[in-house]
Design a protein around this nucleic acid. Structure first.
Length: 519
RNA sequence: GAUCCCGUAGCUCAGGCGGUAGAGCACUUGACUUUUAAUCAAGGUGUCAUGGGUUCGAGUCCCAUCGGGAUCACCA
């Protein structure tokens, strides 16, 4: 234990000896917040020069002590609550009981530390320098902090000194991060508002919010390696879902016209600045619609989110050097048009050999097992994606890579699928859903052949899903959004870790400040 | 998975060609009844990520391991 931690434990003991409970049980009724007082406190100067304080003359607030400035027989503190910070003014005179000044001289001056939670009651005023301050009449310790927080200081111009910046510590101890770097709270508040806005929009569309299994006997709906677990009572393997798609479609079969789910999904793959092993996928499915309808709905929903999150209520969100404009309609390119535009290749006429030659010429890695569809996909990711900064729909993909998508109504070899790209990244994937059970069975067969050739991510045949389709699924449009990547766009972040409260990290191991997992 | 960079006090960091560790803030003691990155005076702080090696001597050089970051690969 460090010296500072020992000193705090001693202070805790002394408080108890003085009859002060460092962790009192009773509620403390908060009647005001720091930011409100700072923003709305008013006073008037009367003709005789005296000041008349107009509001916040009896307030209770609670929060952490984030700074203390002692000034002889008085002291100033900065109190931080969920809304922000406000200065407190504490005078010794008001905490002397008879001749006993212990409460001020010992409890307040010696035994309180930065990071402690206190509750105070008093009145607002302005100091000589004009800072709105709460003059404290009563002070109560609400919770003692036993570890020193990193002390981040800010000057009047807003410059930050000794910032707590180590990403490892910030992510491992998000509670410390958000305490001393409160500006990061805005990211999570915006993320929450984004989800709330999407939910409200989908509710207005008349969709039903549902919950589907996270533990699945057969994983499907996406192409990815799953996490595997085991159910003891049933003595069977279960998979953490990589997608909720097949369950949502079962609910369309069941007769719901539209369903949606914000779903944590799990993929057993690498961790980097755009991938976390668990992430949030939001999918929705609507009966009797097609992928064209979905494009319009997507535009409306994202424009509404942008307006909810932008500073001025407009549809434009700054991201790095770009101004992303979420007002529809978005540019629509077929995959063929996009490739033609950015590479000059005409994929209607280009043979597999042509495509391979193009890849070799442009240093795009290929392997001999790749067919036309995979080559196109490679070319697309290397040459096209990075140009798609403003929201852009890319539509009509090759059949081979879309085992759950309906064949195109007029273009042989293609499917009715689109992906939404923003800032060069895919953020949504949508189709007119395949509802022909016989076709679906064939597609699963094809996946099985991939699996037999060693493709670990090929989709397993889900017999119960096929049975559902055989009972009949209406024509349906469905879409999935990567919520974390959308949150990154809407909050200006470049790593997924910054939009997750608790990103996955390796265990701390031998770190000296690590809490012991077991006695 | 590959490559490169990083890991020194509670936090942010400095430690030249190898000679046994420093600053600011935090902390401790004292002064100050409107301070605000408070100020002033005095004083502590550390398994230099971990384990080996080279050396008379390692924070420093070498190797391995752990953790983090960046780039790349993977994510059809």
């Amino acid at each position: 234990m460090t010296d500072q931690e020992l000193i705090r434990r001693e202070a805790l003991q002394k408080l108890r000896e003085l009859g002060i409970d460092p962790y009192p049980a009773e509620a403390f009724d908060v009647t005001a917040f720091a930011a409100d007082i700072a923003a709305n406190y008013r006073e008037e100067v009367l003709e005789d020069g005296t000041k008349n304080r107009l509001n916040y003359q009896d307030v209770c607030l609670a929060g952490r002590i984030m700074a203390v400035r002692e000034a002889g027989k008085a002291l100033f503190m900065n109190l931080q609550d969920s809304s922000g910070r406000i200065q407190l003014y504490v005078r010794r005179d008001e905490f002397v009981y008879g001749d006993d000044a212990t409460f001020f001289d010992v409890v307040i001056k010696k035994l309180l530390d930065l990071g402690d939670y206190i509750g105070v009651r008093g009145f607002a005023f302005k100091t000589r320098t004009g800072e709105v301050t709460v003059h404290v009449r009563h002070l109560k310790l609400l919770s003692k902090s036993l570890r020193p927080l990193p002390v981040v200081k800010r000057d009047a111009e807003g410059h930050i000194y000794d910032a707590f910046t180590d990403p490892e510590l910030r992510h491992r101890m998000r509670y410390v991060d958000l305490t001393v770097n409160p500006e990061y709270r805005q990211i999570f508040i915006k993320r929450s508002k984004m989800i709330r806005t999407m939910r409200a929009y989908l509710d207005e569309l008349g969709l039903l919010e549902v919950e589907t299994p996270i533990l699945q006997p057969v994983y499907g709906g996406a192409l990815a390696r799953p996490f595997i677990t085991h159910h003891h009572a049933l003595d069977m393997p279960l998979y953490l879902r990589i997608s909720n798609e097949l369950y949502l479609k079962r609910l369309i079969v069941a007769g719901f016209d539209g369903v949606y789910e914000f779903a944590k999904v799990f993929r057993n793959e690498g961790i980097d600045r755009t991938h976390n092993p668990e992430f949030t996928l939001m999918e929705f499915y609507v009966a009797y619609k097609d992928y064209h309808w979905l494009m319009g709905v997507t535009e409306q929903m994202l424009e509404r989110v942008a307006r909810a999150l932008s500073d001025d209520g407009g549809p434009i969100i700054p991201y790095g050097e770009h101004q992303l404009n979420f007002a529809g309609p978005y540019t629509r390119f077929t995959m063929a048009e996009a490739i033609q535009k950015y590479t000059g290749l005409d994929i209607e006429t280009a043979s597999e050999r042509h495509l391979r030659a193009y890849c070799d010429q442009h240093n795009i890695e290929t392997d001999p097992s790749m067919g036309t569809a995979q080559l196109l996909d490679e070319i697309f990711s290397e040459k096209v994606e990075k140009h798609l900064i403003q929201p852009t729909f890319i539509l009509d993909y090759p059949l081979e890579m879309s085992p759950l998508t309906k064949k195109h109504r007029s273009k042989p070899g293609l499917v009715e699928r689109f992906e939404l790209y923003i800032n060069g990244k895919e953020v949504a994937n949508a189709y007119s859903e395949l509802n022909d059970p016989l076709d679906q069975r064939q597609r699963f067969e094809e996946q099985r052949r991939w699996a037999e050739r060693g493709d670990e991510e090929a989709m397993a045949t889900d017999e119960d899903f096929l049975r559902a389709l055989e009972y009949g699924m209406p024509p349906t449009a469905g879409i999935g959004f990567g919520i974390d990547r959308l949150a990154m766009l809407f909050t200006g972040q470049t790593t997924i870790q910054e939009v997750l409260f608790f990103p996955q990290m390796r265990p701390e191991g031998q770190r000296k400040d690590a809490p012991a997992a077991f006695e």
